[in-house]
Design a protein around this nucleic acid. Structure first.
Lengths: 209, 209
DNA sequence: ACCTGAACACCGTTCAAGT
DNA sequence: ACCTGAACACCGTTCAAGT
């Protein structure tokens, strides 16, 4: 009995994993249902048994990309530290796979995937007596900024890997080569966001004690 | 001579204007080259005389959407006020047309359109003696957050106009109906960003004077 | 200068039918 | 339960040719 080994129940996971691999290898524009089916040695229509549509598939891929964030230990951090660590780690996750920020951005906006920093930031903030309303706002600023920043970063990366950097710089003489999207300015931005939250916390606590 | 009236040189502008109209009327997914051509009473291939590709067309539409921002008078504002006013006005521009934030987000990330707040924020900041490096960072946080926020706002808007709000809320029992994307939390976020910039400015000026 | 006509090489999705 | 085969209704883009 059951000699055919494990009844491989997780073929849905296999599809998502192959999709993530194709994303990283060939980029989002080439992550088509047809290419994915071919890579799996299957007909395109077979994918629709596992996922209702392409958006749902992409949401599953987004979840995989963001998974490492959930395991990040934040209990002992200050709120200021948590904002910076969560932002930096979210950026790491997005930079791990090609075009990941674009994919996550859309899954996030469609509400098909939860905020990758909200639960942990809320937990730390509560522990320090910060009102949820403030941490909610900070979480939104943090995730929108980070995803948008890395989106921009990855687009420029693939853009000048194709050698069409001049086109983008010819926009405005003053505006050219705005920000090189360096590591440093990202860290400064996170500090600015954390500082902003601190000010709000102080203002909220000030009148009371 | 020249009896045929004005030689209508601006048909390129007409194409962009019609595209903006279609965007607002039917949404980004239905803004196809074929639908646009039909609306103009022309063959799809005719559009490629005016624009090299669809991305360039969309960039022109983005520029139109963001145009009102350039006329905003900011000279007399404090840096703190400028951040909040520019953010609020950017949101207004994006909310004026359906799916505008998604379109602008991609044009922005592709570098086909300049930052809609950078020039004015830099000008105000210089006037107040704020180092460019700091206002650059603040401008990035401001634009990424605002575009991302409104993207999320508009997606939810069209999502529940289609009556599929429950699907998104069934994600996580704790995480459900995260932020109703209200006017108020957006204003609070802008204040937080402005506060963060203020702290950075104070820190930069402190050791010196 | 501006546009047509026709083609090329693709898409996501559905659905009866197979096993 | 899981997949095939075949179709439907589309896409963006190119390019010779017209006017």
């Amino acid at each position: 009995m059951a000699t055919s080994g494990t009844p491989r129940r997780r073929s849905r996971e296999d599809v998502a994993e192959m999709a993530l691999h194709l994303l990283d290898e060939y980029g989002l524009p080439d992550l088509t249902m047809r290419n994915l089916a071919t890579a799996l040695g299957v007909q395109p229509s077979a994918l629709y048994w596992h996922f209702p549509n392409k958006q749902a598939l992409l949401a599953a891929v987004s979840t995989r990309i963001l998974a490492p964030l959930a395991e990040l230990p934040v209990e002992d951090l200050s709120v200021h530290e948590a904002v910076r660590v969560l932002g930096a780690r979210l950026r790491d996750c997005l930079l791990t796979y090609r075009d990941a920020s674009e994919l996550v951005s859309s899954s996030l906006s469609l509400g098909l995937v939860g905020s990758p920093v909200r639960p942990q930031l809320l937990e730390v903030a509560r522990r320090r007596g910060v009102p949820d309303a403030l941490s909610e706002v900070a979480a939104e600023v943090l995730v929108h900024f980070t995803v948008g920043y890395v989106f921009h970063e990855q687009q420029r990366r693939t853009a000048d890997s194709l050698g069409l950097l001049e086109a983008a710089d010819a926009l405005d003489p003053d505006e050219a080569t705005a920000a090189p999207a360096d590591e440093d300015s990202f860290a400064k931005a996170l500090t600015m966001i954390a500082d902003g939250l601190d000010v709000s916390v102080t203002r909220a606590a000030g009148p009371l004690g």
